[in-house]
Design a protein around this nucleic acid. Sequence first.
DNA 1: CATGAATGAGTATTCATTCAT
DNA 2: AATGAATGAATACTCATTCAT
Lengths: 226, 226, 226, 226
Amino acid sequence: MRSDTREGAPVKAKRVPRAQREQQMLDAAVRIFSRSGYHAASMDEIAEACDVSKPMLYLYLGSKEELFAACIRREADRIISAFASAADPSLDPGEQLFRGLTAFFGFVAEHRESWIVLYQQARAQGEPVVEDVTAARHEVVTAVTALLRRGIREAAGERTRADGEDTGPDRGEAAAMAQVIVGAADSLAGWVLDTGPEPPEETARRLMSIIWIGLEPRLRGARYEG
Amino acid sequence: MRSDTREGAPVKAKRVPRAQREQQMLDAAVRIFSRSGYHAASMDEIAEACDVSKPMLYLYLGSKEELFAACIRREADRIISAFASAADPSLDPGEQLFRGLTAFFGFVAEHRESWIVLYQQARAQGEPVVEDVTAARHEVVTAVTALLRRGIREAAGERTRADGEDTGPDRGEAAAMAQVIVGAADSLAGWVLDTGPEPPEETARRLMSIIWIGLEPRLRGARYEG
Amino acid sequence: MRSDTREGAPVKAKRVPRAQREQQMLDAAVRIFSRSGYHAASMDEIAEACDVSKPMLYLYLGSKEELFAACIRREADRIISAFASAADPSLDPGEQLFRGLTAFFGFVAEHRESWIVLYQQARAQGEPVVEDVTAARHEVVTAVTALLRRGIREAAGERTRADGEDTGPDRGEAAAMAQVIVGAADSLAGWVLDTGPEPPEETARRLMSIIWIGLEPRLRGARYEG
Amino acid sequence: MRSDTREGAPVKAKRVPRAQREQQMLDAAVRIFSRSGYHAASMDEIAEACDVSKPMLYLYLGSKEELFAACIRREADRIISAFASAADPSLDPGEQLFRGLTAFFGFVAEHRESWIVLYQQARAQGEPVVEDVTAARHEVVTAVTALLRRGIREAAGERTRADGEDTGPDRGEAAAMAQVIVGAADSLAGWVLDTGPEPPEETARRLMSIIWIGLEPRLRGARYEG
DNA sequence: CATGAATGAGTATTCATTCAT
DNA sequence: AATGAATGAATACTCATTCAT
């Protein structure tokens, strides 16, 4: 045991193994990126924030762009698994969506930085970074789309096709719906962050109240007719 | 006819009156900002794009930040008036929303750059610029909120208050709904831009099909109950 | 006439037109590059040496590599025209070579930096720069080769071809000879720079004494036979 | 047989004795230096190329500069001994030179990297390294000079001094001649490397054909007289 | 009204070098 | 004998902004 356990000068945590350091770096980077945006964030700032010299940052993460991409990746994985692990596939689609959204709003409340970096920062960057982000967003949308498609199929099974006409949603529309849900959830998440906290279930219920009540009939073939 | 007609070199359009020049500058700026993001866009780039020297840019618009703010302002005004002028207040809220959304999707399809700058770029910027943007975005949301509040009041009038309990949306929820609509519209607008064009009415109907079918009962007090 | 002609604080020569500034920059760059080598030379250093800020340097010359290439180009042109304008084509090849070499050694003595940058620095750099240099060097060698080929043709005219065998130099060998001359001249130029000055004619005569005395018979077909 | 034979991973050759490791390091260093030049070469690169950690590199060779010096030393020794061991002092100077040059061209063909580092890289470096190099290069030139001086003495012995005037080469000129030879040989070596291989004797003969035919009379007092 | 010339203050990135193990 | 972890100090390059004309 070290003799200076009783705490003297701020002991610099040194000789940290690589895997751990990389996580520290990503933590700091997500924080800074979410605060100032990709371009405004400086590598100096990030390096200082994780108490490491810039060369280490570059040695481990390669470049600013790669660092940003790594952040995106990590946060996207987190968010997707939060959503996915909440949506028990044995439940019906509406219930799954509700639980998924609850998990999502819970995650965003707790990791607002992750969310900001992933959705707001990410979409605003020009050419180089945009693709990593689009890809990540796409995964989220895909997860939701899958959910909806199952709902559509089930609803279609129940639908009468006596007249041979099926006014229910097609493949493309499921995608559009997913976009609506994700966009709405994003926007609502931002609103909650701004207006003050509320339990994630509450936020999820808000969204479901608007979306699902319309979505469910839509899955059965109803349309808005001006 | 100009006296120097005999000179064959590409005559630079000179001596343009201020008001016009400013518009040219804003046009270029919106284009560049939307393409590369606020930080990545350079004043050199913008100056070149509107064929004006940088000193003129600064003389007329003050600074990069002010220039960005001016862009935001102009585009926000455009979009709000597009939305507002479509929503004839004599119609019922659903119809208004439908027409407003149609106008909105039409505008975004034609001026995608305006929308990108206003909605995506704007949210991503750090401290200095954020306020201008939040304000502008707020105006859009406010317009929608106003619409919804009217719908709520009307619906409330029809609602029976026998039991004294009103499960209909309160003031805050109207704002949440507006967020949902704007977020969903944004997301859908992006999707349409990516997937290929379709008539704005069609996109608006998509959104209404999902949102309004649920929104309308919600206005009357229905809730999603898990 | 300006009123402060009597010299006060070191008046910064400002507002210099572009063409002139570019020359100043090249002057400084050649000086620094020749002194420290391509990599060791820093743009800061060069900027300071020509009393201009770095942004100007980059605005006008593009990048370190382009700047170096521009130096190479300018100095190569100078040296080639010095050599070429001295070698009056109406004279016989030996005399031309002598005059060309005299001009060359004179040039090198006066512009040692040009020479160093062109020959010594240039050859030592890795991939990116090497080609500009090789090209420049090639031009010099080509000029000499042309000279020699004329000599060869003339000598061949005088040669007896009774036995049908021509042991005189072929095309390839003229190139080899040119390499020898240029290499020797280069080396000798370096030696003169190190050992102290002597009139260029003297150096040229040294080289001719060694080279031409052997070259001339060689042009006529003589060979060293071990 | 090693006891850990059962382990299939590529076993890093460890515990190599110092002397051998140093040679491996020098091998790698010469390769890298010749490829990229002194400054552009990085210690990381070199360390990786000889599969050793940087601390070892520093422990054994001291610093980048010392490492470069060590390269220069080793390669200079190699080349000088190649030249020297070929030039049997019992032969006459012309023959010695021919054999020396043959050995030289042979060496360069086989160890082009050694030569590049020694001759081209070396001359281009600024202050710190230059001296090591100049010294090494000087040794090569000295070896040639010695040869020539013997030739001069012998020739002088044969020369008539009836008129008391000796137009033969003095000490300084022997050095100049050596420079010419070395420079020409270098240039020719480069040419051969570029144009495709030929037997070293052939290249040596080329050079002798040009140089010696003139050099030999020059040793006897002949001069080029314009 | 209009601009070519000019810069102070950054930013990402790299390198030679050294501990602590 | 050997190395993963770590850094101080440079370096190329860019940008928002301002004079002098």
